[in-house]
Amino acid sequence: MEFHWKIKLFAGLQERLAAPQLTLVLAEEQMTAKDLKERLASAHPEHAAILAVSFVARNHTYAADEAIVRAEDELALLPPVSGGQDTLQDAGAAAEDMEPYIVTAEPIQSEDVLRKVISKEHGASIVFVGTTREWTQGQQTVRLEYEAYEPMAVATMRQIGDEIGQRWPGALCAISHRTGVVGLAEISVVIAVSAPHRESCYEASRYAIERLKQIVPIWKKEIWADGSEWKGHQQGPWNPTVPLPE
């Protein structure tokens, strides 16, 4: 009996292999994540290096090398991650406005994200706003393009919020991240945090952006006048299953 293993690709991987998804026809119904990567490397030896530093995702969760994955799972291979108006709205839009973790192709307003964490029990709130800068290490950027594995990105953002709540009891977090083209000086990410006291708020805000860069599957492509590069996919080692130090 044969099993069809379908593996989604993103960012630099999708570009290098010129496909959004790979399919392997194998006799095995299950194997470890490490074995799956080795099978992919055997099928695509010219890309073995990038495959080796990528991570398998199983049903929107990172799978360590020893984890068992199955052909029936939703599988993806992830390269290292990068790092309002006053109008009447329909019910769907209103629900999204209250959702603390969002991936969107629309412009982000920092005030909207902050509103989600303001609480009468909290005396401190912080908003981190990430924007597109023009110059990086002497290289002039024309624009950025972001790509996300959206359901997993939202799930891992929610994980960050849960971790913050455990480390700093009572703290609240909301994150909105752009996808698609983000021009110079435009907002790519907004992280809002509130807490009873300012010390916890500062610490939780720093934790949120560092953790986002570590585990959330969102990739950044820098576009220059004379070329482009996916930021993140060439880096390593990378292990999103390891927590940040206390």
Results as ranks from 00 to 15, higher is better:
154 V>D: 00
186 E>V: 07
224 W>S: 10
141 T>R: 09
228 S>P: 07
123 G>C: 13
176 S>Q: 14
188 S>E: 07
213 K>V: 07
184 L>T: 09
185 A>W: 10
189 V>M: 07
159 Q>G: 09
175 I>S: 01
136 T>S: 15
229 E>P: 02
160 I>P: 00
217 P>F: 01
219 W>G: 00
237 P>D: 08
159 Q>F: 13
136 T>R: 15
222 E>T: 08
172 L>I: 05
128 F>E: 04
133 R>H: 15
146 Y>I: 02
219 W>H: 01
171 A>N: 03
146 Y>Q: 01
133 R>P: 06
164 I>C: 02
155 A>G: 12
224 W>A: 11
112 D>W: 13
226 D>F: 09
133 R>F: 09
111 E>N: 15
192 A>H: 03
168 W>M: 04
212 L>D: 01
128 F>T: 07
145 E>V: 11
195 A>T: 05
172 L>W: 00
203 E>W: 15
200 S>R: 13
225 A>G: 13
158 R>A: 14
179 T>D: 05
150 E>L: 12
116 K>R: 13
122 H>W: 03
150 E>Q: 12
175 I>R: 01
144 L>H: 06
191 I>A: 05
221 K>D: 01
129 V>C: 10
219 W>K: 00
129 V>Y: 11
203 E>F: 12
238 W>V: 06
196 P>L: 05
205 S>Y: 05
215 I>F: 09
203 E>Q: 14
190 V>N: 02
133 R>C: 08
129 V>F: 13
